[in-house]
Structures are given as structure tokens and as C-alpha cells.
Design a protein around this nucleic acid. Structure first.
Lengths: 218, 218
DNA sequence: AGATCAAATATCCTATAGGATTTTCGAAAT
DNA sequence: ATTTCGAAAATCCTATAGGATATTTGATCT
């Protein structure tokens, strides 16, 4: 029975970090891919049977997801994925991004490591939706990491998960604009031009906000 | 002594929200009061016996604390409180605060509710260390809340916990300066002067950073 | 005295069982 | 047809037991 468990044996890191962590990643991936849609109940028992583990690691993983705002718990009523962002939440999220990411882009332009720089430039234009979403996530993650501040990187990673979910809900199209805006940011960082990188990132986020805002009416 | 702990007992919602939440608040309070010092092992079994509950809610609470950066887990080695901040982490934290809090102060000056405004003005000068720490936390929390952005409020609340712990480690003195800086911010917000509130908050954080930085040599 | 190795201890991790509560489904009454 | 009430089902919450692992302690050897 133990041999049947390692469904992720090849991907699992060498030092196993516990079942709870594994469950956490798995459920988070399911939420991000909309396999578990927003505002949907998540049963501890069902997950335990589906993943073939006990309830304890499921419960730990859900507690971590709750702390990250991906699910919410009601006493004696179980867990449920957070409902899709409404207009007010979208506004708050982009207000926050506008505070952080332009600054991160500036610092990245000034101090980003060369290895990360090369990785940033290797971003290919992605044809499919999923590939574009992954590329976009990786793009912003690299810049946040380049800023050299773990708090910034962690905060943005957490926010981008919600942006990803929101965009997936509306099957947002791949716009040429976004790719061009990314290119402008990459060019500014490559040129080590902090002012230009900050301005390009600010413009990118504002345009991105305008594109996403249209999907919401309430 | 248990009765002295429920600082929010009268504010707590009538419907009990589960043992895990209760354990979470309790352990977080113990960490913030240095009853559990930084870099100290936290035994699930001991906590279960001490609090008189089973291991499951303890485990859930520790998972949430881990997601908030207050404890860390090593596989098969148990939980431990995070080590005290070093110089690099302090720098990162205040860089982050400088990005967020001045903006929050500006928005609070422009749009804070009158009820919150009155509560902000009622801050008394606190004689003891603990009372000052609580007042400081409440001061910044009210401003973050006044900005009307939950993400800002939550992020700052999380950061202020670490500031609180760091300051408690060094029994930092109560400075007249900090009180005066607070008063300047309050005055600016009262006058609905966004520019002045932002500048006053920025100066307060920079001075606060200077006061705390001296305690660290490495 | 200091270092090395092995046994014992403490702890974590997982699994299962029982009690408590919410939700849901169906029937009856208005 | 809609609403209300009650019982069944599903689910969560808590507690306890057993296997696995890291840490510690003590004795032995150099």
C-alpha cells in the first residue's frame, strides 16, 4: 500500500517534507486550475479518500490554505474555496500591486543578479492560455525575487495566485499588449534603468487592471 | 492568569469558532509576549497537555502560525519559533513598511471614518512597555484600517507582530520622540491633509528604523 | 579529557473510532 | 405551489493508539 502512494515520486524533492506540504501544493494547484472552482465546498473526508492519506495532513494543508486566503472555514460547516473576487477586492488588489511592483522593478533594474537576468530574457511568447499564465507568473516572480526582499516576493506571489484565478475564471484572452509591456520592462531592467523600469511596470499594471476590470459589472 | 489573556474576550464573537482558532490566538500571544522566546522548540505534545486539548487543533494552529511566519517546521523534527530578526530581515521589513504605511496614512487622512478618527485621537500616553506596545500596534492598525484596503491592513498587522517581538527582545525604551511623531501623524490626519500625513508617517518609520537598528550589530 | 558510537527517550507523523453539529431531503400543512 | 417541520445523511471535530524518526544521554575507546 505504501508503494501505491508515491504518485509524485519522480517530482518529489529528495528530502520528503511531509505529506501536509504535498497535499498543500496539490490542493493549491487544483484551486488555481479551477478544478476546484471558487465558492465550492472542500470536504476533508473526500480529499483524504481521493489522495489516499489520512485526515490529519489534509487538515494541516487546509489550515495553511486558509492562512493564505485561498479557503475559508466555518465552524462545524467545513472548508470552502473563497468566492471569486468582486470589484472592491480587485480594486484593493491592484492598489496594493501598484504600491509594490513598480518599486520592485526599480530595485531589480538596479541590483538583479545576472543569472536571473538571463532567465528573465528567455521568456518565450506563449501560445496557450495556461502557458501564458505560467509565463506571466514566472515573469513577475523573477522581478520580485530580483528586488532582493523576501517580504516583497512572498506578498506578490500570494497576490498573483488570486490574479491568476480571477483571469482564469473569465478565460481572459492573450493580448499582444501584455507581451509588449513585458518586453518594455525587460528592456529597462536590462539597461539597468531604474526610472524606466518602475514607470514601465506601473503602466503595465494599470493597463492590466483596465483589461481585467471590464469583466466585472457589479 | 488565563483571565488576563482574553484581551478581546468581550469583542469575541458569541459563536465559538473552534479550538484551533483559540489555540492559535493563545500561542501567538505567548510568542509575542516572549513567553516562548525566538528560536525555541515548540512541542505539539506539551502544548496539548498544557492546554488540555487534543493534538489535532494544536497541529492546525501551528500550521497557521507557520503560514504567517511565526514558527517553522522541519520534517520529523517538530516546530520551532522563528529566530530573532537579523539585520538583513530588519532592513527588508522596514523597506516594506516604507512602501505601504505612508500611502496608508495618506488614504486614511483622505477617507478615514469619523468613528475611527475619534478612536485614534483617544490614544493616551502609555507609561509601561507593554501598554506602549499595545497602543503602538493599535495606532498603526487603525490607520491601516482607515486606508480602507484589507490587504494593506492584513499585511501590516502581520509585519507589526515581528516588529513587536523584535522590540520586546531588546526591552526598547519608550521614547518621547515616538509619541511626538504619533501626534504629528494624528494631527495631519485630523486636518485631512494627505501630503502631511504621508510625510509624517514616512519620517516616523525612518526614525523608528534608526532607533531599532542600533540594537543590532551583526 | 575529548571524541565516537549505541541505546533510550522524547517527539513527531499517521491512522482509526466515536461524539457533535450542520446541511439536506422529503413529507405534510396552509 | 409554497412554506414549514422533522428525520436521515454527510461532514466535521475531538480523542486515542501505534509506527517512524530525530535528539539526547551515557558508556567506551583513544
Amino acid at each position: 500500500m505504501a508503494s501505491a502512494l508515491n504518485e509524485t515520486a519522480d517530482r518529489t524533492i529528495a528530502r520528503p517534507s511531509g505529506l501536509a506540504e504535498e497535499v498543500y501544493r496539490r490542493v493549491r494547484a487544483d484551486i488555481m486550475s479551477l478544478k476546484i472552482p471558487p465558492d465550492t465546498r472542500v470536504s476533508v473526508d473526500s480529499l483524504a479518500r481521493e489522495l489516499g492519506v489520512s485526515q490529519t495532513p489534509i487538515r494541516e494543508a487546509l489550515s495553511m490554505l486558509e492562512a493564505n486566503g485561498l479557503v475559508s472555514k466555518r465552524h462545524f460547516a467545513g472548508y470552502a474555496t473563497s468566492p471569486r473576487m468582486d470589484r472592491a477586492q480587485l480594486d484593493e488588489l491592484f492598489e496594493f500591486r501598484l504600491l509594490i511592483e513598480p518599486h520592485a522593478a526599480r530595485k531589480a533594474a538596479e541590483a538583479m543578479a545576472d543569472t536571473d537576468m538571463r532567465q528573465l530574457a528567455s521568456g518565450d511568447t506563449a501560445p496557450s492560455h495556461d502557458a501564458f499564465a505560467d509565463m506571466d507568473t514566472e515573469f513577475h516572480r523573477l522581478i520580485a525575487q530580483g528586488a532582493g526582499n523576501h517580504l516583497i516576493a512572498d506578498s506578490l506571489a500570494r497576490l498573483h495566485i488570486h490574479v491568476h484565478i480571477f483571469r482564469s475564471c473569465f478565460r481572459s484572452e492573450i493580448t499582444e499588449e501584455a507581451v509588449h509591456e513585458h518586453d518594455a520592462i525587460i528592456a529597462a531592467i536590462h539597461a539597468r534603468d531604474g526610472d524606466k523600469a518602475e514607470a514601465a511596470m506601473r503602466r503595465h499594471i494599470e493597463r492590466s487592471y483596465g483589461r481585467l476590470r471590464d469583466f466585472i459589472k457589479d
